[in-house]
Design a binder for these strands. Structure first.
Lengths: 339, 339
DNA sequence: TTGAAAGCGCTAACAA
DNA sequence: TTGTTAGCGCTTTCAA
């Protein structure tokens, strides 16, 4: 690796001048600058970011901690973050927690050593505690909230989205609507559950606990919960299912198939979170779509602007709208009599 | 941030001793070490990795450059890499090129400034040239080859996988088998094409150029190519399609649907690369599965072992086996007469 | 507009 | 076994 000194020698100036030529060009004479840039070019010089960061006591980098890189939702969020960061010449350190608070803790500790300027994080249930490891690091929470007082966040309108899904179903005439909710220690699940209740209330349908089952946010959890709900006696079985995230929706669809229920004739399904899978499934799935990419992009832009303008601001809490996309998995109930 | 000096003061030793206590514990007296660790604990000290790396002139980090984080194949490879890296306490810098050589160049330049110890890269068509930016950086190519002489690589047996797919189809009785091949400037596409030819040859079926169409590795490219192949006159239309990657397979299935072709009655399809989509599609898709996770994990392990044992070794070229999974998208041709 | 010099936090000779 | 010291490559006073 070439260093500033190599460039300085070649351009016959001091290292200080080279440094200025690169980071504050207006402080260097036109003439000198040209000479320096030529030398940089000739040597293929790239600044050593470690040295720069060490000296400046902060690096042009951000941490990004997500819970599941294999989930297309998170992968897309990550892409939004990366694109925004790259635009501003920031490097992103990506960590994956698999929803494991212990992995999150480790990630935060490693991250700390890299002196990032800020952090974007999809919280786990212990994030509030873990964030103490990086106190004072400007942080934005994505998708969910950790409950940290004064935290910034970028989320979607989960309540409104869930409510829209339920209103769509009640408008079709469904009265017995089941929900596969996520883990109730994750705010998105709680909010979507709230939207479900609101939607029922708006249609004057009483809330029935036995129609709501938790799932672990994975395909298998959705499958098991759906099996339980759909195995209820004929008159008790939900005619429609609202599923709290993309992975569990896959499980629910598989369960319906295993039980020989046709969608939408025997069962209507609305999932949360769109995906190619939902789009190309047969029948194509009605879903509450989220602006995943925007969540990441906007969160990153917001964080960077927080960094620029000092962080003595009010907490930023952004809620993006969701979008109900009606496809072919929803129809009036009893379209064809139940088996 | 606390520094070594803070710890040293608290433990009443020199910074050098603290440094040793942390990185070479056996060089420090039991007694002293305990005192130091207590101080570390009390202060919540985390080493500044920038300073350490600057001093050691190399950081405990690796670069990972993939072409499309939104493609589950790549996301899974990335996860394999991350898991292996984490196991050895390495940090991964992840960059995404979107198959754009210019973005790749920028990524390499930024990466360079972070002094990574090694690089894992899914090449683009200009990687061979771009890699000059990081000459001497131990590098392993994943999934594809850039053509750099002496390069290390971890790939799958594309020829064998494709051949197995074709043999499966010919065994079912297909004679007119179309292929949607990828971009021929990417080695995987070339190899899968070769496997296709080999498979045909093994069954004594002549190769027909007009049955092979390129695609751009995206869903839309697959759709367009499939449309063209499947719109041929009845007696000329392929009875089976072999598609060169996961994204294009989605497009091919959509095209078949648009044309009213039933799978597998009217058309058999085999895709390359498994996915949840392929598994839960109806009919479930027959595919050549790749060990995505293992590609990443093994490549990372290999890179780290290269780093440990010096790099004066022979080029490492690992080929992992693929696995033909027969599901419901393949059947004998003319099962039901063509429309 | 430029240069000299100090120092970011750490590690690694070398000395004790 | 421990401490002293120099220095990784850069930025940033301060002085010229």
């Amino acid at each position: 690796m070439k260093s500033l000194e190599d460039v300085a020698k070649l351009a016959k100036v001091s290292t200080a001048t080279v440094s200025r030529a690169l980071s504050r060009p207006d402080m260097v004479a036109e003439e000198t600058r040209k000479r320096i840039l030529a030398a940089v070019e000739e040597l293929g010089y790239q600044p050593n970011r470690l040295a720069r960061s060490l000296r400046q006591r902060s690096s042009r980098s951000l941490g990004l901690i997500i819970t599941d890189i294999l989930n297309p939702f998170h992968a897309t969020v990550a892409k939004g973050v990366q694109d925004a960061a790259e635009k501003h010449d920031y490097t992103v350190f990506l960590f994956n927690t698999d929803e494991d608070p212990e992995k999150e803790r480790r990630a935060l500790n490693v991250l700390r050593g890299h002196l990032p300027q800020g952090l974007l994080i999809v919280p786990t249930p212990r994030t509030r505690e873990n964030l103490k490891l990086v106190a004072n690091l400007p942080t934005i929470e994505l998708d969910r909230e950790s409950g940290t007082p004064g935290a910034h966040s970028v989320m979607v309108d989960n309540i409104g989205g869930a409510r829209a899904a339920i209103e769509h179903l009640t408008a079709l005439g469904h009265r017995r609507i089941g929900m596969i909710v996520g883990r109730l220690d994750i705010t998105t699940a709680v909010e979507r559950h709230q939207g479900y209740r609101d939607g029922l209330a708006a249609a004057g349908i009483p809330y029935r606990e036995e129609l709501v089952l938790p799932g672990n946010h994975r395909e298998e959890g959705g499958r098991i919960a759906a099996h339980a709900l759909l195995s209820r006696p004929p008159g008790e079985r939900p005619t429609a299912l609202f599923v709290g995230n993309n992975e569990m929706t896959v499980g629910a669809v598989l369960a319906a198939r295993e039980l020989g229920l046709r969608i939408p004739q025997d069962l209507s399904i609305v999932g949360f979170d769109d995906s190619r899978w939902a789009r190309t499934m047969q029948p194509a799935l009605s879903v509450v779509a989220q602006p995943e990419y925007d969540i990441g992009f906007l969160a990153c832009e917001t964080l960077l602007s927080l960094l620029r303008h000092g962080k003595a601001m009010q907490p930023v809490r952004i809620r993006l709208a969701t979008n109900l996309i009606v496809r072919d998995s929803t129809a009036p109930p009893g379209h064809i009599s139940q088996p």
